[in-house]
């Protein structure tokens, strides 16, 4: 009778899979967010250049150029330095952000004409970033803890087998959204599309990503992002260039002194 030991061998697997089956949509959504986050762990630091192209409903364009330096912080949100290069009237302005998994981010703005570092209240996240269709909360470090999740199902997006997960801001009172729906591929957990629903629960914006590249054979970055605002007809495109990882940035590059002398 060889069948019995085989069954005994299979029993734990059956139990495990029944546990998997019992996973609620909330747990599955959270698990996907954790896995996507875990795949970002260990990047250390990176820098990149970004051009924003703002387009109104008549097709008129304007552009903003910024540079971003990011440092991974183990156990908390990342530290980031955003330097504005154009338009020229804001050249030299810089933003230092310490993001946190729980609670508000710490932010300081450097105003070069006055040589002044000013603390900023970051609680309200729904304001426009540089007049674009991106809100501060869209460009902020996406910490797992800032949302709750619900797995909605699977869908094909541009040939990628994706999961659809709905997320809800924990700090709902200060977010511009009631919910977001995210499309991530199952192979690499890359984000391809996000739909944003405003406080009246109507569809406000859609973000799509493409032109992904992998760095250090681990970390995927999209080189093009497009945010469409369905309510005002405006779009903002982000073009990312010159991603560099392991540049040697350290904690000392992210304080108020380094903010004051940033170039």
């Amino acid at each position: 009778m060889r069948i019995l030991p085989t069954l005994f061998f299979l029993l734990p697997l059956l139990v495990t899979s029944s546990v998997v089956l019992a996973e609620t949509p909330g747990e599955r959504g959270l698990a996907i967010a954790h896995e996507a986050d875990a795949r970002e762990n260990g990047f250390g630091d990176f820098t990149s250049d970004m051009e924003m192209v703002l387009r109104n409903r008549h097709g008129q364009e304007s552009s903003r150029k910024i540079r971003i330096r990011t440092l991974e912080v183990v156990g908390d949100g990342d530290k980031a330095l955003t330097i504005f290069d154009s338009p020229r009237d804001v050249k030299g302005t810089a933003l230092l952000t310490f993001s946190h998994k729980i609670g508000d981010d710490d932010q300081w703005l450097y105003l070069p004409a006055l040589k002044r570092v000013k603390r900023i209240a970051s609680r309200n996240k729904s304001g426009s970033f540089m007049g674009s269709e991106f809100a501060y909360e869209d460009i902020a470090s996406q910490e797992v803890e800032k949302y709750t999740y619900k797995y909605l199902g699977d869908a094909l997006y541009n040939g990628h087998d994706c999961t659809m997960v709905e997320s809800y801001p924990v700090d709902a009172a200060n977010s511009g959204y009631t919910r977001m729906v995210s499309w991530r591929d199952k192979d690499e957990f890359r984000l391809w599309k996000v739909e944003y629903y405003d406080r009246k629960a109507s569809h406000l914006k859609t973000l799509t990503m493409d032109d992904y590249n992998q760095y250090l054979e681990l970390f995927w970055r999209p080189h093009r992002m497009e945010m469409i605002n369905h309510q005002n007809g405006k779009t903002t495109e982000l073009h990312w260039r010159n991603f560099r990882f392991a540049t040697g940035l350290r904690d000392a590059d992210f304080n108020k002194n380094s903010l004051r002398r940033v170039r």
Binding site: R119, I120, A121, R123
Partner: peptide, 9 residues
């Protein structure tokens, strides 16, 4: 001194 208290600076 500058302090952040929620949405207040």
């Amino acid at each position: 001194l500058q302090g952040v208290f929620g949405s207040w600076l």
